[in-house]
Design a binder for these strands. Structure first.
Length: 273
DNA sequence: CCCTGAGTACGGTTTAAGCC
DNA sequence: GGCTTAAACCGTACTCAGGG
């Protein structure tokens, strides 16, 4: 379950790499059950771990910290109580049981102390290897040691494909309406499109009979969804055309896997519009 | 046509590991 | 010992189907 947090509605995957957050939610409603949600959350986490390895330990060690005063990471000075520099020190963390440290006291080596410390730090860094150890599971995943859950993967459903717990018809976007008692009622197909509002069409029970009216409404809902998809594609092409000169970056396609288009900086988010 | 709420997208806060 | 950052945690906003 490394990097995966259970949620009332499914699972949440969250990993951070060099300030970039890789985050995705896997709801049971979108993936056809809790089991599929978890399996696909794990697939996705493994893909992130494999394709975005952590920084090399050495690279991270060499990155200058805000409080560094020497311009060389791992090299600092030891100041005596009077404010006098007592020694220059090279120190490197290899592991919990191995911390390299050499002091170069100014008293014994004089002005060469600083350059000796820098030289020593370089030697210490040569003994540092591998990637940042973020979590024991990381290495196993990268080596392919984890057991990939077998079996098929259901594709993610769009919102309009999700049948809600409160749905009465069994088909999303299709409902039975009865304006008043005594009215034979009608089946209604409704589809919402952002910025355009809803389209709906009614099929009266009086005219078609109950079952026929229902299947006509279901077929109509299918047409509405197809039209919505077509409009969205058209809009996308138009958009691409408008910006073809300024943006050479290809859009992430739906089938490109894994899809990391959701990544964003872990801090400094712009405010919502 | 408008309100409600399920589902989830987003982004900030807290915790704790890692390192200087 | 103290600081930085990765990971976990959590609250809120948003979208759109359901329903009156």
């Amino acid at each position: 379950m490394y990097g995966i947090a259970p949620r009332p509605w499914g699972f949440e995957v969250s990993l951070v790499r060099n300030g970039t957050r890789y985050y995705r939610q896997f709801g049971k409603a979108s993936y056809g059950g809790l089991e599929q949600a978890l399996v696909q959350a794990q697939d996705w986490r493994d893909a992130v771990v494999r394709s975005v390895p952590p920084v090399a330990r050495r690279a991270r060690a060499e990155k200058l910290r805000a409080n560094n005063t020497t311009g060389v990471s791992g090299v600092f000075c030891q100041v005596a109580s009077g404010g006098r520099v007592r020694a220059w020190v090279a120190k490197t963390y290899i592991g919990q049981d191995e911390i390299l440290r050499t002091d170069f006291p100014v008293d014994s080596v004089g002005n060469a102390a600083l350059s000796l410390a820098i030289e020593e730090r370089e030697k210490q860094l040569a003994r540092m290897s591998g990637l940042a150890r973020l979590h024991p599971a990381e290495e196993a995943i990268r080596q392919g040691m984890t057991v990939q859950a077998p079996g098929p993967r259901t594709s993610k459903r769009s919102k309009s494909e999700i049948t809600r717990s409160t749905n009465s018809s069994g088909v999303s976007g299709v409902q039975f309406k009865m304006p008043n008692a005594g009215h034979p009622g009608y089946w209604l197909a409704t589809t919402f499109t952002a910025g355009k509002g809803s389209v709906c069409k009614a099929f009266s029970v009086k005219e078609h009979g109950h079952d026929m009216a229902k299947s006509l409404a279901i077929a109509e809902r299918g047409r509405q969804l197809a039209q919505k998809l077509k409009d969205a594609e058209q809009h996308e092409h138009q958009h691409e055309h408008e910006h073809e000169q300024e943006q050479a970056q290809p859009q992430q396609q739906k089938q490109a896997s894994p899809d990391f288009s959701f990544q964003y900086k872990a801090s400094g988010h712009p405010a919502r519009p």
